[in-house]
Design a protein around this nucleic acid. Structure first.
Length: 748
DNA sequence: GAGTTTGAAACT
DNA sequence: CAGTTTCAAACTC
């Protein structure tokens, strides 16, 4: 855990004075400070990771924290993207680096990174790596995934942290724990807090240590300020500060902590070395760290999303050496929020996943999620419990946002994942699980793939498994490609080019398609956050509060089957639809409202399976929320789906943090969003709403939301769900501001 | 599991 | 822009 990041963080944090914004700002300006408190940093690292919420970034805060962020970002990429717009540069770069690191070579780098700690930048990059690296190795997947995940998750991290804390506590209890009990007791509180915001989660952590609390009291106030001022950074920044203060004297033990983490993420181990000095504060730290890992697990799960844009950068990093991490502090990189979005992640080196940020849903994602979700839930739980987190299992669950009665701890973790892209998390998890299961298989015989799909695949949910035979998975026919993710084992595709190995081809193809249709990779379904109907947007008005990007053209299915993209996406048909005999349960083109939806759905359900219904519901904003919370039935509760499924409008999310509309983005969506910003509405799509939605949901108007154009970023992708925000977990989506420029295409 | 249906994507 | 073809998912048996 020597990770430089922590150190840096700690350094930055060390000065409590930072409480005052001014002071902080100054600190940021001066690189020196970071160096000061290296020790403390570690504790925070985890925290920092968690901090995602860049969304709110206030320029000021961002500015002063930048140095810090950089570090943090390493952990949480997702959040970073948000920053990118404002702070962007640094943060972004950091993210990128992290991503690269993860993808490239986790193992070796981690160590090196620790060494680098002396250098702030290096630290940043390293810090990110180390986490990733650790986990990668093995069963530890959790840890491995965690770091990476965090990066990806970014926005959700904060919340996730809270959850994580809880989890970690539980785990620790089992293994060993001194102070843990107290911590645990507090854990409940933590959970609660965490849900809303990462910042809160952090607080909880702090709470555990009375000393910290005392010490921090003042700081807390400051922190709160910070948060307010900078929602985005808040979590990370806060943590840093707090811990630093608490930890100031400590420092050394971090290594032990790290080791412990590596071993099993359980701090207790570290405690041995630490002995008593580990005060509550340390415990808190550990917890925080643990949390991170946990979250990571989820994140690790991330699906292989393709970020084409990111890919490029990544490649560079990769090529350069695993060191992608290596300081990616370049300001330029930072500028591109896109990079953040893409977080390449390797699990077992098998597949790199990139998270795409986006707005709205990709039908594909939805579909997969819904179906799989059910299965996944079951499997996930089992796996999760067994593993406790661990890798594969964890990965899977991560996706599940729902509360699982069974494993609350786990659930929390999952929630945590939400980091932003519930979808991603799901996907990732699925991916991870898939990898784990299939290490052998890789792309091999289709049969095996199928098998996995059926079995492991179920768990994976999110992963879309395509079955392309002629398109080489380089056309929109391919769900994976369309969703911005690489094909993976579970896919039964033939002659697949949609793999990391063929990044160039994939990227080029994607560009081509985008050149033809800038919105081609945009989520097909654009959802407004349920919670926040924006007055301006008509889309909100739509029953579903979401609409299909282009509208369907159904003639025989009456928009009652999944052939219909609107239906599949859980949205009602709109004016833009050219369907005939529309009977879309989610809303007919002619205006029949969703109200009838339930009844209709029920009818349909009878016809189809409840399962299918559930899925639909999940897709559908309304239902989702409820269901998510209800783990119960097969449906889905599948938390997994939930997370992904709907992509609430990013904006809405902002408006309602609670609801969090996640932006899920279909993998591509993110790009899309960004893209739009760049090229507003050039989209071929005739849809009125769409452009508006995309923009705007944010857009336009909503001032705060903002979506800043940048904001479009979602914490990933996953996109899928969006409808309901996460139930409790609340992942909030943070829209991460995407840099003005569109993700993928920017290169255009 | 094979075959059919369907509608989007791609092509002309 | 419209019509046709291609494609793969969704669905049925």
């Amino acid at each position: 855990m020597d990770t430089p990041e922590r150190n840096q963080i700690g350094t930055t944090a060390a000065p409590k004075f930072e409480d005052s914004p001014v002071f902080n700002y100054i600190n940021n300006l001066s690189p020196i400070q970071p160096v000061k408190s290296i020790h403390t940093a570690q504790t925070f690292n985890s925290l920092s990771f968690s901090s995602l919420p860049s969304v709110f970034t206030s320029p000021h805060t961002s500015s002063y924290k930048e140095s810090r962020f950089l570090r943090r970002r390493c952990y949480s990429d997702l959040s970073k993207p948000d920053f990118s717009s404002e702070n962007g540069n640094k943060g972004v770069t950091g993210n990128v680096d992290e991503l690269q690191v993860n993808s490239s070579a986790p193992d070796d780098k981690s160590e090196s990174s620790t060494k680098l700690s002396s250098e702030p930048q290096a630290l940043k990059s390293h810090s990110s790596r180390p986490d990733c690296d650790r986990p990668l190795p093995d069963s530890d997947d959790r840890a491995v995934s965690d770091p990476c995940v965090e990066n990806n998750s970014g926005s959700g991290s904060s919340e996730a942290e809270g959850n994580r804390l809880v989890v970690s506590q539980t785990e620790e209890k089992e293994g060993t724990s001194y102070d843990w009990e107290s911590l645990i007791t507090e854990g409940a509180d933590i959970l609660i807090f965490s849900s809303p915001n990462g910042s809160e989660a952090i607080r909880l952590v702090q709470k555990p240590s009375s000393t910290l609390a005392q010490m921090m009291e003042n700081d807390d106030a400051n922190l709160s300020r910070m948060r307010i001022a900078d929602p985005i950074e808040s979590s990370g920044g806060q943590h840093e500060i707090e811990f630093s203060s608490s930890r100031a004297g400590e420092g050394c033990e971090l290594k032990d902590m790290d080791q412990a983490i590596d071993d099993g993420i359980s701090f207790p181990i570290s405690s041995d070395s630490m002995s008593r000095e580990i005060t509550d504060e340390e415990v808190a730290r550990y917890i925080a760290d643990d949390c991170m890992p946990v979250s990571n697990l989820h994140r690790g799960m991330r699906r292989r999303c393709l970020d084409f844009e990111a890919v490029v950068s990544r490649r560079k990093n990769m090529e350069d050496g695993s060191n992608g991490c290596s300081v990616s502090t370049h300001p330029e990189e930072k500028t591109t929020s896109m990079d953040k979005q893409l977080v390449p992640y390797k699990s077992g080196g098998v597949v790199t996943r990139y998270v795409l940020t986006g707005i709205g849903l990709h039908l594909n994602a939805l579909a997969t999620t819904s179906k799989d979700a059910k299965n996944l839930n079951h499997e996930r739980f089992s796996s999760e419990r067994q593993l406790n987190l661990p890798n594969s299992g964890g990965s899977c669950h991560s996706s599940s946002t729902g509360l699982d009665p069974l494993s609350t701890s786990i659930v929390t973790e999952q929630d945590m994942d939400p980091s932003g892209s519930g979808v991603q998390s799901e996907e990732d998890a699925a991916m991870a699980s898939a990898y784990v299961l299939a290490d052998d298989f890789n792309q091999n015989s289709p049969k095996r793939k199928r098998r996995r799909l059926e079995h492991a695949g179920e768990t994976e949910l999110s992963c879309k498994r395509c079955n392309c035979k002629k398109s080489k998975c380089l056309k929109l026919y391919c769900e994976c490609f369309a969703a911005g993710v690489y094909c993976i084992e579970p896919c039964s595709c033939q002659d697949c080019f949609n793999k990391p190995i063929h990044e160039d081809t994939v990227l080029a193809t994607r560009k081509q398609i985008e050149s033809r249709n800038p919105l081609a990779f945009a989520p097909k379904v654009i959802r407004n956050s349920d919670s926040l109907p924006e007055p301006g947007d008509e889309s909100n008005k739509t029953p579903a509060s979401a609409r299909h990007k282009r509208g369907c053209n159904c003639k025989k299915s009456n928009c009652l089957k999944r052939y219909c993209e609107c239906y599949q996406g859980g949205v009602g048909c709109s004016i833009s639809c050219r369907c005939e005999g529309c009977k879309n349960a989610f809303g007919r083109k002619d205006g029949s409202s969703l109200l009838g939806l339930e009844t209709e759905l029920e009818e349909e359900e009878t016809e189809a399976n409840q399962m299918s219904v559930m899925d639909k519901a999940l897709q559908g904003p309304e239902i989702q929320n409820n269901e998510e919370q209800n783990p119960g039935s097969a449906i889905p509760s599948t938390p997994l789906q939930l997370p992904r499924q709907l992509v609430p409008l990013p904006f809405s999310a902002r408006s309602n943090p609670l609801r969090s509309s996640f932006l899920n983005v279909g993998s591509s969506s993110g790009f899309y969003a960004g893209y739009k910003h760049e090229k507003p509405n050039t989209a071929p799509v005739s849809d009125d709403a769409i452009p508006n939605i995309l923009r705007g949901d944010g857009s336009p108007g909503a001032g705060v939301k903002t979506d800043s154009p940048n904001s479009m970023r979602i914490s990933p992708p996953q996109s899928d769900f969006g409808l309901s925000p996460l139930p409790r977990t609340g992942r909030k989506l943070i829209l991460q501001s995407i840099p003005s420029f569109p993700s993928l295409t920017p290169q255009h």
